[in-house]
Design a protein around this nucleic acid. Structure first.
Length: 578
DNA sequence: GCCGTTTTCGGCCCGACTGTTTTCAGTCG
């Protein structure tokens, strides 16, 4: 029974939640959460590190004690300490922490004084008006609890980036049109280009905060106002998206942007660096904290770059601000020179009307040329997959001739002959080698039997990689954001196998896939594996999904050289040749 | 529970807002 990093993360987070409800030392609680975070962003398997006898205390936030607990989890799959805590404190209490307005103190009180141990019992207690009887809680909190319980049962928590984009850009325009507003920027995970956003954080520069905030509440998408003060307000959009607006003065723009962009962990690293230098950093600026002086003096704040400069650091791109070593890299002058959309010279997975796409071969090629691409791989589905009509071997052969004719006619772009061939349950492919050999590249993918055990799934895909015609493994984990989890597969092993065999993995840029994700991108880079960023476009407009893939790649520290399709076709051809 | 060329003990990020108080605790980000 393999133990994944996510198993350890889950156990540590549960220990933290339950300890917090028990009223344990908050710093001890944080130690568990920090450790969970460290492990969740690791690009290696902790189980493997344990096996190889590596010193886990080298990892940040992990000392002797937690290293021992990690080893215990890797060995036994469980943590005795957690079982002991669960004897004292009902484990389902941890889920109550997810309810808005309930933190550890209140959960403890509701448990001890009303005997609530689950979400169901919480709902019952609230309906029977037993929550308002508790000290420090009243009818408003009770109503909020009921409302949030309802929301939880109806909605998913996070909003996909492309969906958020649609809502954010008009809001920014609306706020920018106000006369009292000098600048407006979306911060938070949106600015860090995460695949999903929880809340939206909007930052506005104005000296008329109240005015801006009341205008914000009047915006057409606002369904209700959660809170409203002089400098910040939270509203809920009709879509269910929570939006925070914060208003600061010009001289605090950079500090506020930095602060509200986060991540929280990145900010903590900077804040500690400030403390080391006898400064304080908050959303208004960087301040000296001389005890003698009557007033604190602002030494930076208007500009992000200036603030990083105070710490002798270059500006760090928001996509990297996840406390995954970016500050250390910045100190060493080793920040990656991140890939941009302009570096991309072609798309390596697209579909046409020959399978389940909506545009013809020629329409797709012309749309790609419009984007300034040098090449476009057309990779319609093979026959196996149930989706409409996939290509049989003879149809693919005809297709190859058709592309040859089109290439004679087209200028400034070359259409690459490809296919998205299905990997069958036993790892064989559903097209014969003699037709695959005639293609420029072969995209291979899993579209069935998602529920194989880890070992089988991994070996199935590795067997497909053994076929020298196979070039790029599409959407390697199969996850679909908010819809379907990844199938069980050892991605690290797939990466090693790909390096050995000279094939590659894909970053699928469909906004509901983004597969590989950012952490896997970084893992690939560390293992010397280059990746393709492909849109998997099923229509001409979807060619523009490329940016989502690039965002994910940037979050994974990728540079142009780490990505296959930043190369000219000439160079790429050499790499694809196995 | 972690961490340390100022410390092996004593720190550990901090400001805004709400709801409940009547001066502030708890939550949130």
């Amino acid at each position: 029974m393999p133990v994944y990093n996510s198993d350890i993360v889950e156990i540590f987070n549960e220990v933290a939640d339950l300890l917090e409800i028990e009223g344990a030392n908050p710093f001890r609680v944080r130690a568990y959460r920090d450790a969970a975070r460290t492990i969740s962003t690791l690009s290696r398997d902790v189980a493997e590190m344990v096996e190889e006898g590596e010193d886990l205390t080298e990892l940040s936030g992990i000392g002797e004690d937690l290293a021992g607990k990690i080893e215990e989890i890797v060995r036994t799959g469980d943590l005795k300490q957690l079982e002991e805590i669960e004897q004292r404190t009902p484990p389902e209490l941890a889920r109550l922490l997810d309810i808005a307005g309930l933190g550890p103190k209140r959960v403890q009180k509701i448990y001890e004084e009303q005997g609530v141990t689950s979400l169901e019992e919480l709902e019952e207690a609230a309906r029977e008006k037993r929550i308002r009887k508790l000290d420090g809680l009243g009818p408003k909190t009770e109503a909020k609890v009921l409302e949030d319980l309802e929301r939880w049962s109806e909605e998913e928590e996070r909003t996909r980036r492309d969906v958020a984009e649609e809502r954010v850009e008009p809001l920014l325009d609306y706020l920018r049109s106000m006369e009292n507003v000098a600048r407006v920027e979306a911060a938070g995970s949106y600015r860090r280009k995460k695949e999903t956003v929880g809340d939206l954080d909007i930052l506005a520069i104005s000296d008329a905060g109240e005015k801006v905030i009341s205008r914000f509440a009047e915006y057409e998408d606002v369904e209700r106002v959660v809170s409203q003060g002089e400098t910040r307000s939270t509203v809920v959009f009709r879509s269910g998206l929570h939006v925070d607006l914060r208003v600061v003065a010009e001289e605090s723009y950079g500090a506020a942007l930095l602060y509200f962009t986060g991540s929280k962990q990145h900010n903590i690293v900077l804040r500690n660096m400030a403390l080391d230098r006898g400064w304080k950093i908050n959303e208004y600026g960087v301040w000296t904290t001389d005890e003698e002086a009557e007033e604190q003096e602002q030494i930076a704040g208007e500009d992000e770059e200036e603030i990083y400069g105070l710490f002798d650091l270059p500006w760090i791109a928001p996509e990297l601000r996840e406390a995954r070593g970016e500050v250390e890299a910045a100190e060493e002058g080793e920040l990656p020179d991140l890939i941009t959309l302009e570096d991309v010279r072609g798309d390596l997975q697209t579909h046409t009307t020959a399978s389940d796409g909506r545009a013809s071969l020629k329409e797709m090629a012309e749309a790609a040329r419009e984007l300034g691409y040098d090449y476009l791989a057309v990779s319609d589905h093979s026959g196996y997959i149930g989706v409409t009509q996939g290509l049989e071997a003879d149809e693919l052969a005809e297709r190859i001739d058709e592309i040859d004719r089109l290439n004679d006619e087209l200028e400034e772009i070359v259409v690459l002959k490809s296919v998205e061939v299905d990997v069958l349950e036993d790892g064989s492919l559903d097209l014969p080698d003699d037709v695959l050999e005639r293609l420029d590249l072969v995209v291979f993918a899993v579209h069935s039997h998602f529920d194989l055990p880890l070992e089988k799934q991994t070996e199935r895909i590795m067997r497909a990689m053994d076929n020298p015609n196979c070039t790029i493994l599409a959407h390697p984990t199969g996850r679909q954001i908010g819809k379907r989890p990844a199938y069980e597969v050892d991605v690290g092993r797939l990466m090693e196998a790909a390096v050995e065999r000279g094939c590659f993995l894909e970053v699928n840029a469909q906004p509901d896939r983004l597969d590989l994700d950012d952490v896997y991108c970084k893992m690939a880079k560390e293992r010397g594996l280059k990746l393709a960023i492909s849109t998997d476009a099923h229509g001409t407009e979807e060619l523009r999904f490329m940016r989502y893939g690039v965002f994910q790649a940037r979050r994974g520290w990728l540079e142009p050289d780490d990505v296959l399709n930043t190369r000219s076709w000439e160079e790429l051809k050499k790499l694809l040749d196995r």
